[in-house]
Design a protein around this nucleic acid. Sequence first.
DNA 1: TTCATAATGACAATATCAATGTCATATTGA
DNA 2: TCAATATGACATTGATATTGTCATTATGAA
Lengths: 147, 147
Amino acid sequence: MKTQELYQLVWMSRPLMQAAEACVESGLAGTDLTVRMRAVLEILRAGGDLAVPEIAAKLEINRQYVQLMVNETLASGFTELRPNPRHKRSPLLTLTDKGRELIDNVITREMEIIRTIGSELSDEEVSTALNVVSLVTSRLRAQDGST
Amino acid sequence: MKTQELYQLVWMSRPLMQAAEACVESGLAGTDLTVRMRAVLEILRAGGDLAVPEIAAKLEINRQYVQLMVNETLASGFTELRPNPRHKRSPLLTLTDKGRELIDNVITREMEIIRTIGSELSDEEVSTALNVVSLVTSRLRAQDGST
DNA sequence: TTCATAATGACAATATCAATGTCATATTGA
DNA sequence: TCAATATGACATTGATATTGTCATTATGAA
């Protein structure tokens, strides 16, 4: 029955996430990057320069914890502060050359792994899976939010 | 491109898991059950009576932490100990009537939610999604394990 | 039967991730 | 101008889980 399979799919989310995180972590070995610092660099790479509260909003994590993550990237020289024209007290965080090169390399390697796995799957299958997972996620959120 | 979508799918695993866990937690409100106690009851329900180390193996969690979870279910009267014919020092954990009724109700309600969400999807889509997620999980594990 | 080895439950310490609380200060916008 | 708010910094707490240790007891092989 379909319900059983869908139930299984939902419960696969934890193993999948754990496997993915373990891979990400392996990919960071040898660099000075931690998984949470990586998240900051990734967001800056995709979204341009951002202030701490903006990063917190994008990551849906509280601002205090993001501040911590950001401070680590600053300390390691992967990011630096630039004046924020929109807010004088909350500077923009920007990737340094070093930081940009690192996150580019990290993501490239990750994509390579994904590309290899993807070679076993059709475009159709991947699209369907993504659609299903997206829908289920949003429905579960709605379910919980309304309760 | 497919690789992008597959990458997205992998990164959806965290939001999906969080949404699922939030739902599970909501479903437990009003009961004396916590999410981790629920995991113990669920495994006993599916796998029959088990000793603590066996539960730990099934959950792929270390035995010390499982012991903690199990002790909580004992304290709340959802499980009880039975002599273990296979091992004199490690008793079998079994569901009490109270525990069985509770976990049955909890899972029934969860299945109901899943059934509702599933009504928007075809059997084909769900099967494909489950296959994709399973394959990606195992490939990521292999990737990481080999590194 | 004996005995070294391994398994078990109990407990403590540590780690990680994250939320929450608080505060002084600076900034914003009415 | 000034009240309300945002921000960074710091502290506290909590949840989840791992690791380490130990005494006791089974277990299984010689």
